[in-house]
Simulated scan of single mutants.
Amino acid sequence: MSKPPVAPFDKKKIVAENRRARYDYFVEDRFEAGISLQGTEVKALRAGEGSIAESYATVEDEEVVLINSHIPEYSHGSWMNHEPRRKRRLLLKKREIGRLMGAINRQGLTLVPLSIYFNGKGKAKVELALARGKKVHDKRETIKERDWKREQQRLLRDRG
C-alpha cells in the first residue's frame, strides 16, 4: 500500500522560496517547522524580505538549526537590529527531530528548506524537506521532462 499524498500546508503569505531545491534534490518527505525569530526579523519578513536560496538545516545537540538563511536588517530598526545571517533555531517535536536524525545519519539524506511563510494564524513557518541529492544525469532528465511538458502544453493549446 502506498503512502497517502501529503496535505499542503496552510500558506497565507510566502516570503521566501527555494526554487532551486526542487531542481537539485529529490524531495522525499516534508515537514512544517516553526522558526525562532527576534522582533526585527519578523518585521523584515512581514515586509517581504528574506532569502533561503543557499541555506540548509542541520541537527545540533537535539535541535534543528537553519544555517545561512538571509533576513536583512529591518530598515526602521534601532541599534537592537539582528544579524542577517545568524543561525536560527527551528521548532519541531522531539519525535520529529529523532526521525530527521535517523534519516540523515542512516540514509544520507539532507535537510533543505523549501519556503518561509506565514500561516493563517500569522506565525512564521519553514517548510523543510528531507531530500536526496540528484546526480548530473538526473538533472538532465528533469530538464528533458520539463521541456517535454511545456511542448505538450504548446501543442494542446495550438490544436484546441
Rank of each mutant, 00 (worst) to 15 (best):
Q107V: 05
G122D: 07
R106Q: 14
K87G: 00
K123E: 15
R89N: 08
S115M: 14
K87I: 01
P113E: 09
L111H: 02
P84S: 07
A124Y: 07
L114C: 08
L91R: 12
E127S: 07
L91H: 03
R99H: 15
G98D: 13
K93A: 08
R89A: 09
I116L: 15
G108Q: 07
R85K: 15
L114N: 06
L109H: 12
I104D: 00
A103M: 12
R95V: 12
R89C: 00
I104W: 00
R99G: 08
M101K: 15
R88M: 13
L109G: 02
P84R: 02
A103G: 05
G102Q: 10
K93F: 06
K87D: 15
L111I: 15
P84M: 08
Q107I: 00
I116N: 07
K125H: 05
R89L: 13
S115C: 13
L111T: 02
L111P: 08
T110E: 14
R106N: 12
R89G: 01
Y117G: 04
K121S: 13
K94L: 08
E96R: 05
T110I: 05
K87Q: 14
S115V: 03
K94N: 14
K121H: 11
V126S: 06
K121Q: 12
L100A: 01
I97G: 02
A124L: 05
A103K: 11
E127Y: 06
V126E: 07
